[in-house]
Design a binder for these strands. Structure first.
Length: 564
RNA sequence: GUCCCAGUAGCUCAGUGGACAGAGCGGCUGCCUUCUAAGCAGCUGGCCGCGGGUUCGAAUCCUGCCUGGGACGCCA
């Protein structure tokens, strides 16, 4: 159990006792919130319960604080409980308990920070899901990093996580992509061919075409237009998906499953596809209506602003129809308890209708969470870079990683709340300098590793180190900071806000740098031997915290960082 | 026009009901004979977009406005 919960329970018990004693009479007890005070002079934890109770108890909040504080039973974790104006109760952790946590963290190792709030529930995080019509670009990278860090954290919080990429490989944009490749293919072989109006202009189309020529030759020229587009399209799509997978891999983003949109329309085991079943269910419950030759989903009945077409008058299902079938598959077929979709800002308008569709399918709409990852505006100095896949003028994930590096890139994207637009100054980001906070964190880990290496070289066995010798303020501060990780994991998993991770990482690094500066670990002085052993234990515990934090963010934890 | 997101230090951003508003970068000073100076210490710097409201208490909640971005298709 987290200390925070222990304190909350103790406060609740104290309030109950005060009520029995007749010292306090309240109509209703609000939720007891235990927070971390901004100012460390106020202790490690605090509650504002007396302030919130004052009205219904018709009493002075400071007096209430005193009455409750008097009845709080001290456990081994808590050193002191103190009422404070205007009506807080402050808690201070005991030094001996903090010291003991060094052992606990070391014992926990890679499971440090794990919790079980997820209780093994099946959750899918579906993210990136870029149409395979072009490479992943900078804007998608943000969602990719967000999704992977979130999935890591949910797994640490005890969820059974599946990371999925939805490949939109049906539909008209893919058709345009196929035709674009076909056009470049013919042009490369000296034929007259005109790019379709909605064609993709990027150089990568021509690259794919020439790769196909190298591998498969000019044979497609002899086929009918329709056959050639289909066959060349199949090859081009595979190439594109592979390229996307490799690019994402370069930034440490991997998936458990790549789900093809086309699977929704074909079912190997049963006569009905997911699409058939989802539509049948909607139809049964009266959510579909035919108007002017098309089939509509009546989402206005469920609070959406307008109805949406699911089957065009041409008989072709829309993208939205696929999405309905896909979510039917996620919930009804694969039985996920919870689904988190990460979409780009350009899809934000689709959230209400997707929620409505989930509800219409008979699922609980709250089991679907859609996170919107806002736009990334690119700049080179003062100049704004317009990103458009159609015109081919965009910065790819690959280019970004090559220039900035995986770790810096992940840190940079992760550190911002996804709901806010961000500016990415390529000039600044690509400048090699110490301006990047990622170095600050990794350097702390490298210093940490360096100490342990030296201890190892000198054959120092610190397994018998006595942690009760850790009384320096910087030592205790480091321990306190380490201990926030488990709370953070729970918080990130509950609020789906991974951007707290990098900020925590920075604070952990600060605590370590302070410790490093003021507490010499491996002493040359023989009489300091006991302290050396104790501090080595602390350093190894801190290493656990660094590794866990960095790995949740998907960043590397280098043992050395050498500057030329 | 309707809807969504944002506006906090020179810059990039944390902080969503509490106790004097934070970090990094930038700028100015200092600190390397012992575990990496990609570090540390100090200074500089903010009517938290503007106006009302709710509250014992508002950067945080409500409301109006201003500014910037996005979405509103039988495209995906």
């Amino acid at each position: 159990m987290l200390v925070r919960d222990t304190i909350a329970n103790a406060v609740a018990a104290a309030l109950e006792q005060a009520s029995r004693d007749g010292a306090i009479s309240v109509d209703s007890v609000p939720d007891i919130e235990i927070e971390r005070p901004n100012n460390s002079e106020h202790g490690d934890f605090a509650t504002n319960l007396p302030l919130r109770l004052a009205r219904s108890a018709r009493a002075n909040p400071l007096q209430l604080a005193q009455l409750i504080a008097d009845r709080i039973e001290l456990s081994s974790e808590i050193d002191s409980v103190a009422p404070a104006a205007p009506g807080f109760i402050n808690f201070k952790l005991s030094e001996s308990w903090l010291q003991q946590q060094v052992e606990t963290v070391r014992d926990a190792g890679d499971s440090f920070g794990a919790s079980n709030v997820g209780d093994g529930r099946k959750v899918m995080v579906e993210f990136v899901s870029v149409n395979p019509t072009g490479p992943v670009h900078v804007g998608h990278t943000r969602g990719a990093v967000l999704g992977s860090a979130l999935a890591n954290t949910l797994a640490a919080a005890g969820y059974d996580v599946t990371r999925e990429y939805y490949i939109n490989d049906a539909g008209s944009q893919m058709e345009a992509f196929y035709r674009s490749v076909w056009t470049r293919y013919r042009q490369a072989l000296g034929r007259d061919a005109e790019m379709p109006d909605n064609g993709y202009q990027g150089d990568y189309i021509a690259d794919i075409a020439s790769e196909i020529i190298d591998a498969n030759g000019p044979g497609y020229l002899d086929q009918s237009d329709a056959t050639a587009v289909r066959e060349i399209g199949d090859v081009a799509r595979e190439k594109m998906v592979t390229l996307i997978r490799d690019d994402l891999d370069a930034i440490g983003v991997t998936f458990d499953n790549w789900f093809s949109e086309r699977w929704l329309f074909q079912s190997p085991d049963t006569p009905d596809s997911d699409y058939d079943r989802a539509m049948a269910r909607l139809r049964e419950d009266g959510h579909l209506a035919e108007r002017s030759g098309a089939l509509w989903f009546i989402s206005t009945a469920l609070g959406d602003e307008r109805d949406n077409v699911v089957v065009r008058s041409s008989g072709e299902p829309t993208y939205f129809a696929s999405d309905i079938a896909y979510h039917y598959n996620k919930f009804a077929q694969r039985e996920f308890d919870r689904v988190i979709d990460i979409w780009g800002a350009d899809h934000q308008g689709h959230v209400p209708r997707m929620k409505a569709a989930v509800q219409a399918l008979g699922m609980e709409p709250d089991d679907l969470t859609v996170l919107i990852s806002q736009m990334v505006t690119l700049k080179r100095g003062d100049e704004t870079v317009r990103a458009s896949k159609r015109t081919g003028d965009f910065v790819t994930l690959r280019e970004l990683v090559d220039e900035v590096g995986t770790d810096a890139c992940r840190y940079f994207f992760l550190a911002r709340a996804p709901s806010t637009q961000m500016e990415f100054d390529l000039e600044l980001a690509t400048r090699e300098s110490s301006e990047n906070p990622v170095y600050y964190v990794q350097y702390a880990h490298a210093r940490n590793a360096s100490i342990l290496n030296l201890a190892h070289e000198r054959g120092i066995d610190y397994s018998r180190g006595d942690v009760s010798l850790l009384i320096h303020p910087n030592e205790l501060e480091l321990i306190r900071t380490m201990l926030r990780l488990p709370e953070l994991v729970v918080q990130v998993a509950e609020n789906l806000e991974p951007h707290h991770l990098p900020h925590y990482a920075t604070e952990l690094a600060t605590a370590f740098h302070h410790f490093y500066e003021n507490c010499r670990v491996i002493s040359t002085n023989a009489e300091d031997n006991d302290l050396t052993l104790a501090r080595l234990k602390l350093v190894s515990a801190a290493q656990v915290a660094f590794r866990r934090t960095l790995s949740l963010m998907g960043m590397s934890a280098p043992d050395r960082m050498d500057r030329d």
